[in-house]
Design a protein around this nucleic acid. Sequence first.
DNA 1: ACAGGAAGTCAACGAGCGTTTACTTCGTGA
DNA 2: TCACGAAGTAAACGCTCGTTGACTTCCTGT
Lengths: 200, 200
Amino acid sequence: MMVEQDGDLTDKCAQVRKRCSSTTREAILDSAMRRFARHGFECSGVREIAADAGVTAALVNRYFGSKEGLFAAVIERAFDVGDLLECDPAELARRLAVHIVRSRENRQGDKPTPLLLLLRTAAEPGAVNLLRQNLDRNFVGKLAARLEGPDTQHRAAMVAALMTGFATLDQSLKCSAIEEDDRQRLIEKMTGYLDQWIRG
Amino acid sequence: MMVEQDGDLTDKCAQVRKRCSSTTREAILDSAMRRFARHGFECSGVREIAADAGVTAALVNRYFGSKEGLFAAVIERAFDVGDLLECDPAELARRLAVHIVRSRENRQGDKPTPLLLLLRTAAEPGAVNLLRQNLDRNFVGKLAARLEGPDTQHRAAMVAALMTGFATLDQSLKCSAIEEDDRQRLIEKMTGYLDQWIRG
DNA sequence: ACAGGAAGTCAACGAGCGTTTACTTCGTGA
DNA sequence: TCACGAAGTAAACGCTCGTTGACTTCCTGT
């Protein structure tokens, strides 16, 4: 019941890839990222993840100990926002808006699914604790540190809330009112919304 | 692994409840609502749901055909926002803010879990289509109809996005920056945020 | 009071899951 | 070159899940 047909997510290099643990590890992390972001933790089977990476399920457990261990590794990598927040505060809102809106374009692309998609797993008992810690530490905390004025923690949390909610409605629920907008218009609007909290 | 201990959700009336299909149906819907909202669709077992309602799993399928049928019935009931939106537009923002913030208080209470918690299931393949339709029809659509000015659909969607994101961070991820605020302060802030979109 | 039908139970099924063990295949340093 | 350890596979285990069909229990209209 309710099967969702995926495209061919199989790593094209898998057929010719040499035996190399680090490369394979990365391939597994990539396909796990895509699966978890698309279907959540519970709905992603290790067999599917492994198949996407061109290996078998047994190898996933060999490298990551368990499915939960794999998820932890994915989260750790995904919440590394890199230099996303490192810019002029005046540019921050636009940068975040581009980041969250642009992700719509990657829906069928082969690029790794963006950070916010991982919030799809926010309901799942095994995932929520890992997510919470990483969100606090790697996003809200870092963003708050770059804000000025009062209530930086709270404002940063609200930025995360808006981004989360937007991503949910846009990418998961595919809310029609959002879907009808074009990309540039969405970026403009989101920039304005986010800026209100960033400025304070 | 990762078992989450629930309180005793069992319907206390179950032991003495007379045999009555409609009453039992409602009891099943109630416990299903709580389970789905807390753990999502895939992580909620029909055996647990049935046990909470004081019956067996077989009866759930008897009444609702399947687990998916049960979910559809829950969604249908949950997205009936009733008269939530029917008020002076100037009061709308506060009303929605109270609705979404107040739900924190019910976390361990015995009241039915509020509407927005259902968005926890937004990642699950079998749930997302049902959710999308009901969200568009019963919330965004109705809210947009009550707004004035341009872009009513889009602004209504943004209200839903903020509420969704806030609910996710607050009730699912339990983001610390939000959790530290007290209830009244949160309501004030959310009212302001929501009002910006409602006014246009 | 009692038959009949509705309400509810019980036990088992088949499928899918994560995981493990024993095995095979490959890359590479001496 | 070739043996040895790393990389990867195959198959099965135990468990849980949703679902089903035959069964029992209770309420109710006559």
